[in-house]
Design a protein around this nucleic acid. Structure first.
Lengths: 210, 210, 210, 210
DNA sequence: AATGAATGAGAATTCATTCAT
DNA sequence: GATGAATGAATTCTCATTCAT
C-alpha cells in the first residue's frame, strides 16, 4: 500500500512549499494552462488571470515569460533526476540499469504530460534553450546514460564497437520518439509495450553476445 | 557507388521553373531565411524584403504565412519520396531496402538542412499540421517502411514478434533523433557513422536469427 | 394575361443589351453579390471572380468600385422613374396620384431588393453620395411628389397649412421606414398593408376635409 | 416651460466621472471624431491620437472598434430613455404622451447630433447590430410607443383599425426621416415645424373621430 | 508585496488600384 | 480589349513589458 508512492511526483508537489505564494501561483497557473495550450499562445494576461496574481508580478519573480517556463522545466528536471537516481540504487548490471532508467523516464513522462510537452516540444525551437540552465540539467540527465554505458564497457557487458555517445543518442531518441505521438495526440503511454520494443530492438543489440 | 547522382536535389532546383516569379522568389526567400532563423520569428515583412517581392503577394500565392511553409515542405517531401523510390529499384532484400531508405533519407537531410528543420522542428508545434497535406505526405513516406517490413515479414526475413508499426516508429525515431542535434547545432551529419549505429543496433535486431 | 407585365423590370433586363459585355458582366456580378453581402465587404477580387472578367477591367469601365455601385444605382433609378411616370398616365386626382406613386415604388422595391438595399443603406454613409449623379436622380424622383402636391394645392385638393416639402418628406420617410425592416430582415413587403397604413394615416390627413 | 431642463444631457456629461480615464478619453475622442467623419473611415490610430491614449487601450476597454461604438450608443440610449420617461410623468392622454415622446426625441437628436448619426446611419449596415445590446435598448424605446398606444386603445382614444405595430413604425419612421436630412446635411432640426407636421399628419389621423 | 493603467512596437493580413504586355 | 502580376499603403489587433502609486 505504501510501495514507492513517495517517489512519484507531480507538479503540484514540486513547488508547493517554497518561494512566495505569488510565485508559486504563477508557476502553477502556467503549468495548468500548458495542459491544453502551447506556450507561445498562452499570454501573460492569461497567466495572470488563471493565477489570480497581477500580471506585472510575473516580472518581479521571473526574468520574463520564457524565464517562467524554464523555471518550471528546471524543477521538473531536478525532481526527475533525483527520482531516477533513487530508483537506480539497488539495480545491478549496466544493461539492467539502462532499462530501469528508461522505464522510469517513461513513467515520469506519462505521469507528467506537461513536463514531457515542455521538454520535447515547447523549449526546442527557442534558440536560447541550448545555452540555458535547463539544458544543463538535461545534459546531466544524459550523462547518467553515458556513465552507465562506460560502466558497462568497463565491465565487458556492452559491446565496444559503437561509441557511447551514439548509444546514448539512440536510446534517448528511441524513447522520445516513441512517446512524442502520445504527447501530441494526448494518448496514454503504454510503458510495457515501449519497454518491450526498446529491450528487444536496442538493448539486446547492445550487449556483448556470448 | 555512382548510382543516381543526377537525382540529387536541393531546394533551389525544386521550384525554379514553375509558377509566377513572385511565388518562386517568396518560397526561395523563406527557405533561405529558415537557414538561420526559426519560422515563428521570421516575419512576413522579412520575407518580403528578402524576396524583393511585395508582402501582399504572400497572400496571393499562399493561404497565409503557414501555408507558405507547408508549400515548401510539401515540395521537399514529394521530391524526397520520388528520389527514394528511385534509389530502391535495384535493391533486393527487405533489410537491405530499409537500410537503403534510411541512408538515402540521411543524405537528403544532410543536403537539405532546411527541409530537416521544417519537418522535425518547425511544423510540429502547430496543431493544424497533423491534419495538413504535408502530414499526408509524411505518412506516405512512413508507409514505405511498413510496406518493406511487410514484405520482409512475408519473406521470413524479419522477426514477427514486434509489430510493424513499432518497428517503423523505432526506425524513424532513431534516425530523427540521431540527426536532431546536427540540425540544431548546425553540424554535418556523418551518414556512415549513423548507418553503422542503425545497422548494428536496430537492423541487426530485426532480422530473423538463423 | 398581358396586363402590365411589360412594365415590370428586374436588374437582368436593365443592362442586357448595351455597353461592352465585360461592363455588363461586372455590373451584373456586383448586383448579384449585393443580394447576400453589403457593398463594403464585397471586394473587387470577388467581383472579378463572380463576373469572370479581369479585376482591372473594373477600372476601365468605371471610375472605381464606388463608381460601379453608382452606375448600378443610376440604372435602377432611371428605370424606376420611367416606369412610375408611365403608371401615372391615366390617374386623376393628386391624392390618387400620390397613392399610385407610392404603391408603385413599394412594388419596385419589393421586386428589386438589391436596388432598395443600395438606395436605403449602402449609399448613404458615403459622403460623396449627396453630390453624386445618383442623388440627382433621387431628387428628380422626389420632385415627382412635390409636383403632384403642387398640383393638388392648386386644385384645392390638398390642405395648404403644411408645406409641400414637409409633406414629401413625410411620405418618403413613411415609405422608406416601412420597408427598411423588410429589406434588412429579408422579408417580403406586404404592399397592401403598407398602402393601408399610408392611406389611412398620411394621405387621409392630407386632403382638405369637406 | 421650464420643466426638466436640468435633465438635458450631452455626451460630455455622460461618461465623465466613471471608469478609468483612458476609457473615458477614448469614448470622448470617438464621439468627437464622429461629428465630422463616419465611423468606418475613422481609424483606431486616429482615435488613439485624438484621445491621447495608446491605441491598444481601445482593446483593453472595449471588445474592438465596433464595441466602442456600441458602448457610446448604449450610453446615449440609456440616458435618452430615462430622460424621456421622466418627461412623461405628468402628461395625460395617450395622444399627448406620444406627442411628448416625439418632441422630446427630436430635441435630444437635435442636441446630440452624433447620437442621431450613430443610431440612424452608422450602426445599421453592420449585421451584428440587430443582435446587439444597443438594439435591445432601441426596442425598449420602441416599446414605450406601443405601451402608450395600447393605453390609448384601452381608453378608446386611438382608433383600433390599424395595428399598434404599424402605428409605431409610422411614427418612428416619420420622425427618423424628417431628421435624416438635417443630420446628414448638418442643419438644425426645427422641432416645432416637425411637430406640426407629425401632429397634423399622423397624430390627428390616429385619434378616434368624434 | 501588489495593483491598475499605460505603452510601444510589431504582426499578419487586406484591398483597391495600376502597370506592363 | 484583356490579362496576370505586382504594389503600397493602411488597418485592426495583440502582447510582453514597464511605470506610478
Amino acid at each position: 500500500m505504501k510501495k514507492n508512492i513517495s517517489k512519484k511526483f507531480q507538479y503540484s508537489e514540486i513547488d508547493d512549499h517554497q518561494g512566495p505564494p505569488g510565485k508559486r501561483k504563477i508557476a502553477a497557473a502556467l503549468n495548468n494552462l500548458l495542459e491544453h495550450k502551447d506556450f507561445i499562445s498562452i499570454t501573460t494576461a492569461e497567466i495572470s488571470k488563471a493565477s489570480g496574481v497581477n500580471e506585472s508580478m510575473i516580472y518581479r519573480y521571473f526574468s520574463d515569460k520564457r524565464g517562467l517556463l524554464h523555471y518550471i522545466l528546471a524543477r521538473y528536471l531536478k525532481r526527475m533526476y533525483t527520482e531516477i537516481m533513487d530508483g537506480l540504487k539497488h539495480i545491478e548490471g549496466s544493461i539492467e540499469k539502462l532499462a530501469q532508467v528508461i522505464r522510469h523516464t517513461l513513467e515520469i513522462y506519462d505521469r507528467n504530460r506537461v513536463f514531457a510537452k515542455i521538454l520535447l516540444i515547447e523549449v526546442r525551437n527557442f534558440p536560447g534553450y541550448w545555452e540555458s540552465d535547463s539544458y544543463r540539467l538535461v545534459k546531466q540527465y544524459a550523462k547518467l546514460y553515458t556513465d552507465i554505458i562506460e560502466e558497462g564497457l568497463a565491465a565487458g557487458e556492452i559491446r565496444t564497437d559503437i561509441g557511447k555517445w551514439h548509444i546514448m543518442q539512440t536510446l534517448l531518441g528511441t524513447v522520445e520518439h516513441m512517446i512524442l505521438p502520445c504527447i501530441i495526440f494526448q494518448k496514454p503511454i503504454n510503458v510495457d509495450n515501449c519497454m518491450n520494443a526498446v529491450d528487444k530492438l536496442v538493448l539486446k543489440g547492445l550487449s556483448v553476445k556470448i
